[in-house]
Nucleic acid binder design. Structure first.
Lengths: 344, 344
DNA sequence: AATATGGATGTAAGCGCTTATATAGGAGTG
DNA sequence: CACTCCTATATAAGCGCTTACATCCATATT
């Protein structure tokens, strides 16, 4: 058996409670005793038992992460490693550990969450995505369990602390950028419709067109899974239209790359014959050929802020509900052409 | 406060210990009582407290994961999301949870491990990479703490259960494949030299050349970080040689894509003027243009097997040390040319 | 000198569960 | 019918820590 607080107490000839207080750096213990106790701890190589501490103090210093189902293509998106890095950094700063859900199906993930929450395994939870009609979110809300959502919750937005981009504005700006370049046949290629993010970006796109007096063509709007192949199907459909678009707004980088590949295969030159703006700017935009102009949504920060604000909630239960908007910026690379000049 | 075992006991009019035994499905409890207790649990909405259970039973049902430092470029490699998926699935099957290290520096990660281990937070640990001269590995071995390594440990190989590919053979086969296509000026572009994997692949490459009687040209061997830009530097150096290689063996996919990009920029056509074989086959090989011929090392399985074998160790402390080799296969796509015919 | 004050530490009761040991009651045995 | 044996359940002692409360002793106060 490992060294316990009692062993330390004995060696330092104090009571176990004193040792506990030294660990917590309680000001009611004199400096002299603290020093003596600390020496004893070092001498014995003592390390506090987290489990016992958790049981006694009813807090685990662990944050539970809810990922999309691992079988979901969305899981494969490099988006996640980046969020994870942000979360990791935010959690580390305050000495919180991260525990992940491992379920494959929605039902399993729901059970994972119940286990974490009711099993007392975690102090709080972060949902790494925001879905429409999410049972997990309802569950957490009903139990009043501390949690933070990455993305905009589609219900009870005012009651739930969340970290998000201004997807609406980002998308509008991207569209306006294309409009400024002279495009008026702009297509929107979005991902999973169940993600709140997708819908917001769609709205931003539509708003920008409306603002510029450009009619919204329903055939220009496509929704497909966040993966390569789907990007290909999407693009083929568009090219077969009577008046195909001259520019594409693609809400996911991986899809954007699929789109570029398909275009190349079909011998449609980018950016000469098709302009593309992509989203996310995980480092793949630079990797694509041509390098893609894209909206950087600072994914790392999304994770980092989520971890920080959850921890704040945990430390101070009266912390007000917050909405944190992580800024985005348009990174101009070389996937768009100015067609303004050509027109004139 | 939540419902405890005592509440259930009272409602079912049995002793708490009986309830505990019902949860564990102990055969010494009669079916009649089990049914009664289970009804009480459902009625009260009881959920066992994992922390208390962990403390009493000295086991947490949690596996600790050691990732490379999040600031490391290696962390960004899609390799990790895939391993994570495998781990997740393996752990889930046996109801184990996963907890990650969050440290940024090597020293912090070491502390994370100490916390997990000595703090009693986890039952076992999985190292997601194998590095040369790894303090963490030494620590775990010295304490005889259950752990599994993904990759080949560079020391005490016979004493440590690990899951690996036969990197040596994979690399040899890839090289032989290029040789069969008629290449004899083959370059090796490897990643971080501290990773055991890199060194093994280098050996496989050299062995294949030796076997075919092709001289080993030191200038053809390059080592760079696992990231895009470095792939570019590597390739430029090679092209400036007096007799530049006609084929490249690139040990990481991301680097391979960087290489292809650079080649395109320099107007060296792939595969016409340069053949490429890449490694890993995370889905980016398909994404590249041209699609890359590559060695699929079944990353998912690496994670899955690691989780499974660690859990086996935990369930049976006498489980023998194992070495699990996950098979690889060469996936032929279109990044290599047969130069055999040209020569003749 | 007697008493109040307060700082430093000790005492002990949990936190919710597991599990070794004790016990009760019923069946089996001669 | 007394006795053993077995099965089903209860009792109680932890697991290693936190923390409310009690105690002690040295000063300060009157």
């Amino acid at each position: 058996m490992a060294i316990t607080i009692k062993d330390v107490a004995k060696l330092a000839s104090v009571a176990p409670s004193t040792v506990s207080r030294v660990i917590a750096n309680n000001p009611r213990i004199s400096e002299k005793t603290k020093v003596r106790v600390r020496e004893a701890m070092v001498e014995l190589g003592y390390h506090p038992n987290f489990i016992a501490r958790s049981l006694a103090s009813q807090s685990t210093q662990v944050i539970g992460l809810v990922l999309p189902s691992s079988s979901d293509v969305f899981f494969q998106n490099p988006f996640f490693s980046t969020v994870l890095r942000g979360l990791s950094e935010g959690a580390h700063e305050k000495q919180y550990a991260l525990q992940m859900s491992t379920g494959k199906t929605e039902e399993q993930i729901y059970q994972d969450v119940v286990n974490m929450v009711q099993g007392g395994r975690v102090d709080g939870i972060i949902l790494l995505y925001s879905r429409i009609d999410d049972e997990i979110l309802k569950y957490l809300r009903d139990r009043q369990f501390p949690f933070v959502v990455i993305g905009r919750p589609c219900e009870w937005e005012e009651e739930i602390t969340h970290v998000d981009n201004d997807n609406y504005r980002a998308s509008r700006e991207a569209t306006e950028y294309l409009i400024r370049l002279g495009h008026d046949k702009i297509s929107f290629i979005g991902g999973n419709k169940n993600l709140v993010m997708t819908m917001e970006r769609l709205q931003g796109y539509q708003e920008a067109l409306k603002g510029a007096g450009i009619p919204i063509v329903p055939e220009y709007v496509r929704h497909d899974e966040f993966l390569l192949e789907r990007g290909q199907e999407a693009i083929q459909g568009l090219l077969l239209l009577e008046t195909p678009p001259t520019a594409l707004l693609v809400t996911d980088e991986l899809m954007a790359i699929g789109v570029v590949n398909t275009l190349t295969k079909l011998e449609v030159a980018v950016p000469e014959n098709m302009s593309i703006v992509s989203f996310n700017n995980v480092f793949f935009s630079e990797l694509a050929r041509p390098q893609l102009t894209s909206i950087d949504i600072n994914i790392f920060d999304l994770g980092y802020q989520a971890a920080k604000s959850l921890i704040q909630m945990l430390l101070n239960p009266k912390e007000p509900v917050k909405r944190i908007i992580v800024p985005h910026q348009l990174i101009e690379r070389v996937s768009c052409t100015n067609v303004q000049s050509l027109k004139k």
